[in-house]
Computed example of a mutant assay.
Amino acid sequence: MSKAQETVLEIDLKALEHNFEYLKSKLQKDTKFLAVVKAFAYGSDANEIANYLQDLGVDYFAVAYINEGVALRNAGITKPILVLHPLAVNFKTLIEYCLEPSIYNAKILQEFISVASHEKQVEYPIHIKFNTGLNRLGFWHNDIDFIQNTLSQTKTIKVESIFSHLAASEDLNEKAFTLNQIKTFKIITEKLTKAIGYKPLLHICNTSGILNYPEAHLNMVRSGIGLYGFGNSEKENKNLKPIASLKTIISQIHTIEKGESVGYNRAYIGDSIQKTATLPIGHADGIGRIYGNEKGFVTINGQQAPIIGNVCMDMIMVNITNIDCEEGDEVIIFDANSTAETLAETANTISYELITSISQRVKRIFLQ
């Protein structure tokens, strides 16, 4: 692994493979695996990640929006792609690219049937989403009769899966709530499958559901954050490998006198003679202003250097007073040792937000 000479995001594909195999080892042999690659594969690179996972044998992919699915098709993905939050304006494109919509309310169901009928589709695969407690998207349990009645009046669509989303599967203090979600989902699916007369795929488990609720794996599971190396608990983080390392370099070193300021709005005032380093990465690259003013830190030659002053669009400044370093030296923003989760916690946020914020202008390097 070479030293960074510019700002780069290194993606370790072998770590991705490790995470996939670890999560898959938790499943029964015939349980399908859906890989969630929305949001540019959680900030890495959806096309590269999806193609690698397709070669490893993933059964299904999921994205948030239709344009993400189109990009995957154009990149050579042939496996089924579930669109989790499709919007009706793009339904024709969805059908054109053989994407599969999550149908989450009556309006979307009726609009999709209308478009699919116009496009002369027969038994086009759809996924019915139920709300069991997250209260975000999804039909209610009392919509089953409406769904069955609507389906019985058309040959245009066919239910490929029925699914829901756990709200707190990583929090064992909420185990009773999660178990109730699982119970509710099983009641719903039993009633709906009986009504429609066939058995679609059933899935409710996300990454933490895979790890904490094996009784709810059913015949498919979904994993997003786990594939990228985070298990939502200290215990499971040890079993997974973060796939991304964000690195940059020192562009310039300054010495400031006591009372001198650093950066916009003079947000940092030195209380002594200090050395600072300027790095070519900023909030336009995904390092938000929340990490400024000594909340966040970077690692230089094995030592933590706090971010001082306000994060700029293209630069951050760090305090290197007690660090032996030079201009051009490599700087670690996060990697497998000093993780994105650790950095995110300094600003009271989560790894998901940090890693999905990494701008696409940051160069990606793929390690085999």
Rank of each mutant, 00 (worst) to 15 (best):
Q54H: 08
P80H: 05
T255C: 12
R222Q: 14
V58Q: 04
G292F: 01
N319C: 06
N337V: 13
G288E: 15
Q148E: 15
G224F: 01
T154A: 03
S152G: 14
G57I: 08
Y124F: 07
S161H: 08
N337Y: 13
N232C: 12
N293V: 02
N337M: 12
N206I: 00
G138W: 06
S223C: 15
A64Y: 14
M1V: 06
E21C: 08
D171S: 01
N265T: 13
G302N: 05
I108S: 00
M317T: 15
K194C: 11
Q148M: 08
S338V: 12
V36Y: 13
K275L: 08
L82C: 09
R289S: 14
I103N: 02
I250V: 03
C98F: 09
V8A: 11
K183A: 08
S261K: 05
G229E: 11
I333V: 06
E327V: 09
Y291S: 03
R222D: 07
K107I: 10
D145C: 03
S272E: 11
I49G: 04
N239Q: 13
L151P: 00
I281N: 01
S2K: 09
N301M: 10
I253D: 04
V221T: 09
L9Q: 04
L56Q: 15
I250A: 05
L13Q: 05
S169D: 00
E190F: 06
A41C: 07
D335S: 12
H85V: 07
I95T: 08
A35K: 03
